[in-house]
Simulated assay, not measured.
Amino acid sequence: MVMPLANDELVITLSPSVTLTLRPSLRAAFRLAHSYSGFESLFQAISEGNLTAISDLITMTCADQLGWAEYARNEDPSMIPALMAAREQLLAFIPALCGVTNSDSEPQSGEPLSFEEYFTQLYQIGTGWLGWTPEATWAATAAEIINAKEGRVEMLAAIFGKRDDTETIDATKGMPADLRKEINAIGKGRS
């Protein structure tokens, strides 16, 4: 299966001189999910126009922290209408925090994971399977980690062989069944 890399960053323009790039890093997703007890509460708060929730989402995902802080501090009278106008874009950005891409069209089976379990497993994949540093893993998006894991599995299958043209060797073979199930379920769109 070929899964295209997602362009999961969001660019929003709040004024002619303020354009921000939001990046759904694992760190931002984890903090937002924890702060709002999941993304449903965050989604609801932003859809209702809660300025704190809007600000939290931007603050935790903004690539230019200083630019955002300066804009927010200036108390420009057009800031609140600009933030309200960006709500639809922000709401559409929330699934990227979970690693959901537009190509995730088929429903996945299995037991659902809590967001804490999901993010913990993504962190373990980044630092364990992929050998990334903790900082690199926290800075990566869920979609990047999932894609890198798929690439790693394909590499292992290429090195150690395939059983036939469509089936690859299970890299989790020999692990306890419950751990195999959880690892193989990572990146399957469960939330």
Rank of each mutant, 00 (worst) to 15 (best):
M1R: 06
D8R: 13
E9V: 07
E9G: 07
L10D: 07
T13F: 00
L14E: 00
P16A: 15
R23Q: 10
R23N: 12
P24Y: 03
L26R: 15
L26N: 01
L26E: 06
A28L: 14
A28S: 12
A29E: 01
S41M: 03
L42K: 10
A45V: 05
I46G: 09
S47M: 02
S47Y: 02
E48P: 13
G49F: 15
G49E: 14
T52Y: 14
A53V: 02
L57P: 09
L57S: 15
L57E: 02
M60W: 10
M60K: 05
T61Y: 01
D64T: 00
A69T: 12
A69M: 14
E70L: 08
Y71N: 12
A72G: 01
R73N: 12
S78I: 00
S78G: 00
M79S: 11
M79V: 05
M79E: 00
I80P: 07
A82I: 02
L83C: 11
L83Q: 11
L83P: 14
M84P: 00
A85I: 00
A92D: 05
I94Y: 14
A96M: 05
L97A: 05
C98H: 04
G99W: 03
V100E: 02
T101F: 04
T101Y: 09
N102R: 08
S103T: 15
D104E: 09
S105E: 07
P107K: 08
Q108V: 11
Q108K: 15
Q108F: 10
S109W: 15
G110P: 13
P112M: 06
L113W: 10
F115R: 07
T120Q: 01
T120H: 04
T120D: 15
Q121W: 13
Q121C: 13
L122V: 01
Y123P: 08
I125H: 05
G126N: 03
T127Q: 04
W129M: 15
L130I: 08
G131R: 05
T133H: 07
T133M: 02
A136M: 04
A136H: 02
T137D: 06
T137A: 09
W138M: 07
W138K: 01
A140Q: 04
A143G: 14
E144C: 07
I145S: 09
I146S: 12
G151M: 03
R152P: 03
V153P: 00
L156V: 04
A157F: 07
G161T: 05
K162D: 11
K162V: 06
R163A: 10
R163S: 13
D165P: 02
T168G: 11
I169L: 09
A171R: 03
A171T: 04
T172Q: 00
T172L: 01
T172F: 00
K173I: 03
K173S: 06
G174Y: 10
M175N: 06
P176G: 09
A177N: 09
K181S: 12
I183L: 09
N184C: 14
I186M: 06
G187Y: 04
R190G: 06
S191H: 01
